[in-house]
Design a protein around this nucleic acid. Structure first.
Lengths: 146, 146
DNA sequence: CGATATGCAATAATGATAGACACATATTTT
DNA sequence: AAAATATGTGTCTATCATTATTGCATATCG
């Protein structure tokens, strides 16, 4: 099954950013789930690491829900990515390749280095964008739809 | 199951580059499969688009096999990636999200744009490296293993 | 105390990827 | 010409990471 955690977490964060901009106090996981066309449980699972990372604040009990814990302009897409994907790398090579020649003995490390560079590259790209900018881009895209 | 096509194709290409450097004429899919610890069928399926892209030359029939069709210094890792992964993007968003608000109406396009930027970033990184340089790095790593 | 939210664990369903096998086709050797 | 052995490809099955579902404990408001 294809991994949709980051796109989904991003949409959730954008929804929370919109709520923040419109001074809506809290959104419930059920409301967010409706927006991302998924289940409240899945949404809460995605929220857990975002809360852990201090990007989102949750209120338990009746009338509870979640909201951004800081302003959207203080959150980068890189933080969202790192929180939701954890240690999982963008690329993972094969492991336990039998060591038989120059290539098979060293590709594993070579590929890991390459994957590191890719991760850093993507990290820089996402780290340079804030959630507030992303919401603004969303508005631009919306306007261009005519 | 995790997608190992690119790391595997890369290892295959590195093996072919090593063969080229050592003046070995051809490698069979069975020999390559042993090196990557996989099946000849899988290797041939990975080779197909590389042949299609003109990076690899194959000889059919008994004593057949494959070899690089040009020198390893004329092949970039970007070409290998593009050939083996085709149109598949590094990131794919959800599709068919119900359109209910500013966010749900436009995230799809927003995410596609972001994925495009990531692809370009990775493409630049891989496009700047040749297979010959990669083989050289493999030798460096091998030497550092002491 | 009832209603309703989050938090979390366990289990089932889904679906992309790799493996296995069959067989047509191409080429060399005998 | 036939045998041996390689590539090329289609189909079916197995694997397994991800997502969905369910159940229940916990927290908070009215």
């Amino acid at each position: 099954m294809i991994d949709v955690r980051f796109p989904t977490a991003l949409q959730i964060m954008l929804s929370l950013a919109l709520a923040q901009a419109e001074s809506v106090e809290l959104l419930s996981s059920a409301q967010l789930a409706e927006g991302v066309d998924s289940s409240p449980t899945f949404v809460r699972r995605l929220l857990a690491p975002l809360i852990q990372a201090g990007l989102v604040r949750s209120t338990m009990g009746r009338d509870g829900g979640v909201s951004l814990s800081v302003h959207a302009s203080a959150i980068t897409l890189g933080e969202i990515y790192k929180a939701t994907m954890g240690e999982k790398r963008l690329w993972t090579g094969r492991s336990d390749i039998p060591h038989r020649c120059l290539v098979s003995c060293n590709v594993e490390r070579f590929f890991a280095n390459l994957a590191d560079e890719v991760d850093e590259s993507v990290g820089r790209l996402l780290g340079a964008r804030t959630l507030a900018e992303a919401l603004s881009e969303l508005r631009t895209i919306d306007a261009e739809r005519i």
